[in-house]
Design a protein around this nucleic acid. Sequence first.
DNA 1: TGTAATTGTTAACCAGAGCTAACTCTCGAA
DNA 2: TTCGAGAGTTAGCTCTGGTTAACAATTACA
Lengths: 127, 127
Amino acid sequence: MSSTESMEMYLETVYVLEKNHGHAHSVDIANRLGVSKPSVTKAMNYLKDKGLILKENYGTITLTHEGRKLSENIYSKHKLISRYLAHSLNLSEAEAATNACKMEHVLTDTMLDAICRYLRDNDISCE
Amino acid sequence: MSSTESMEMYLETVYVLEKNHGHAHSVDIANRLGVSKPSVTKAMNYLKDKGLILKENYGTITLTHEGRKLSENIYSKHKLISRYLAHSLNLSEAEAATNACKMEHVLTDTMLDAICRYLRDNDISCE
DNA sequence: TGTAATTGTTAACCAGAGCTAACTCTCGAA
DNA sequence: TTCGAGAGTTAGCTCTGGTTAACAATTACA
């Protein structure tokens, strides 16, 4: 239960970095999110307490099973929304991603379902 | 320069109440937004300091010229987004409004322009 | 292998946005 | 006309999510 928008951003970032490099470093998270290193330390402690990531002091960061499930869920929303925006509004990849990033934390489930339907109806992958 | 999402919500609520009743009462703002009366007092003081509303102690609330311009702008975004969601995703009025409410504070100008274009292309009023 | 640069942590702080409790003011009805 | 209910305010608190400054650990490499 990461719950807050901000923690969802941190978790999603860990997911993306782990996908690309096998693990995440605090400094990369800070750079990607444009926050200070202490903010990352605090956030990681929180996510660790919640059982969503694994990490020793001064060590690298990886997702737990639970954390992976949750972050995949968030990331898939992101992709979903991005595709919907790109297709329905002719937005560039980058522009769609920027806006999807803001939207992914606040939309209702009903709307997300509707986006899935939209993509299916337009023969766009929904996964 | 209302700037924050929260203040945009307050300002938009003043706008809607004023549109419906000629002026806004704190208690109605509190009810609509689901916040406590002291929160409204604080927000109104802020908006008054910014020159966006007029209000005496214990008096009713009205928009200044500047506040009206700003809140109309916010409200029109809301309508725009609602229509886009309702049309492209077949969402109900209520569902579209709920999601538009969250989105209206965070979307890029590029995306808003694209929504306008979408509505025009589909012969839906954009104003 | 010793040291400088990089990375991560801790402590202390700040601002935003909310809350409750306790109050003050206003205004309509008896 | 007065007084009580409802509306608005004030004070003081909390939580979230950031910050900087100072320090500790790690790593890279000369």
